[in-house]
Design a protein around this nucleic acid. Structure first.
Lengths: 240, 240
DNA sequence: AGCGCTCCGATTGTCGACAAATACGCTGAC
DNA sequence: GTCAGCGTATTTGTCGACAATCGGAGCGCT
């Protein structure tokens, strides 16, 4: 578990945070899903206070939204949030890769290449779940290798938003951006070509964003979620 | 109180967060200062649970550090953290002002001008406390006017770091960067000159950073803090 | 039958007390 | 006189129970 949100001092709380975050990335938990405290309490075999702390942390990260007397749900970022997140990601990750061009060690590059290989393997066996997860982790790995604790934290907040958005406005095309672009970014880093690296990164993120924007107007999936839940509430109309 | 950290649902908790943040900005609370829970409890006339929540939020923001069984202190960011924070601020705030060049309304510009006027007045009457506070608030105001909730949050995390660092490595020169640079940024925004605006912003932040870097090597003030506290513990040597 | 009201179940929010851990001061021995 | 060991006292961490609030079902009224 090369995982990333050791925000709290407590091990249990970190496990809760990581698990939920992982479930969201793997599309097991959809945006808008309810997170009942008691439920989580018995799932993780802990107390409600711990769960509560974990939820507070996740709210700070933007993964869940807590509404006063109604509990926690997986967040549903607005389109504006997504645009802001992409904007900030472009700004930050450009700097990030440019910096890595100067600081990256051979070991760093090896790790990145290994990661991309994993991505490629997952892609080849059509393991969409792993593809999505690994694709996000690549960017986190970049931040991690930069050694900047702060950038890692910020990038986590940003990737959380973009992951949620892709989960909400998911089109078939969204998850097909293979590891090629990551590969080109790595190549630029390896060549110590900062300009090219930041350019590739900008291109990559812009690509991701526009792939989403396609489905922006037509199908805000989650916008219909509540409505659909009310209309087709799992009850066959023949019975009553 | 045009304040910024309404992270929590609870009013009391927000007040605690704001007050502490304000105290840090005004140099009333120095980095490394101990924050005892019980103490805060009676100061804010609340319960320890509230205080605890507030401290957790502040830890997420990077304003305090909580060490497992030893409580909370005002954070003391490392020099690397500071550099990262400035790096990220430059990346983000450049985008920010460029964006404001397109979206800023007349009302926005009026607010910014008013703020700068406040800065100037504070500067003229040598109210250093207000100068520091307002100088930081200017950047937060920019983020606020951009309308991007997310950018505001990130920028808060970043300005917290830079504020802490300036409090730690403070030289006389640090706080003298008058409102002129802010003024030039505003002028560029008003002229809808995105390139110039982002350039001015980069220059401004770079200026701030180098002003600090001067004292980087020579006097890590807070490094001596504990030592000094142990050596000169407010007790006159004549008494005992 | 449609609509509004009330009551009830479920869920969250809050608090106080207890347990654990650490820092400090004291005593005693070398 | 100094240092090690121990006990206490302060501070944080945790938990369980209670109170407040919200959503929904049921019921009565129009």
């Amino acid at each position: 578990m090369p995982w990333l949100s050791r925000s709290s001092t407590n091990e249990v709380i970190n496990r809760i945070c990581d698990k939920i975050w992982l479930a969201v990335v793997q599309r097991t938990l959809r945006p808008g899903a309810r997170l009942k405290e008691e439920e989580l309490t018995e799932i993780f075999a802990t107390t409600r206070a711990r769960v509560r702390q974990a939820l507070l942390i996740l709210e700070q990260d933007g993964l869940v939204t807590i509404t006063p007397n109604r509990g926690a749900c997986i967040a549903e970022p607005s389109v504006e949030d997504a645009q802001d997140a992409f904007c900030a990601r472009i700004a930050i990750e450009q700097r990030l890769v440019a910096r890595l061009c100067q600081t990256a060690s051979a070991e760093d590059i090896r790790l990145l290449r290994e990661h991309i290989d994993q991505e490629r393997r997952a892609h080849e066996r059509s393991d969409h779940e792993a593809v999505i997860r690994l694709s996000g982790e690549f960017h986190m790995l970049l931040a991690k290798l930069s050694g900047a604790e702060l950038l890692l934290r910020i990038l986590r907040m940003l990737t959380i938003r973009t992951s949620l958005i892709t989960a909400m406005y998911q089109t078939a095309a969204t998850q097909t951006c293979g590891p090629d672009e990551h590969d080109r970014i790595l190549a630029a880093i390896e060549a110590r070509d900062a300009l090219s690296a930041s350019h590739e990164m900008a291109h990559h993120l812009h690509h991701l964003e526009t792939a989403l924007r396609l489905s922006d107007a037509p199908t805000p999936v989650s916008g219909l979620r509540e409505a659909l839940a009310a209309v087709v509430p799992k009850r066959s109309p023949s019975s009553s």
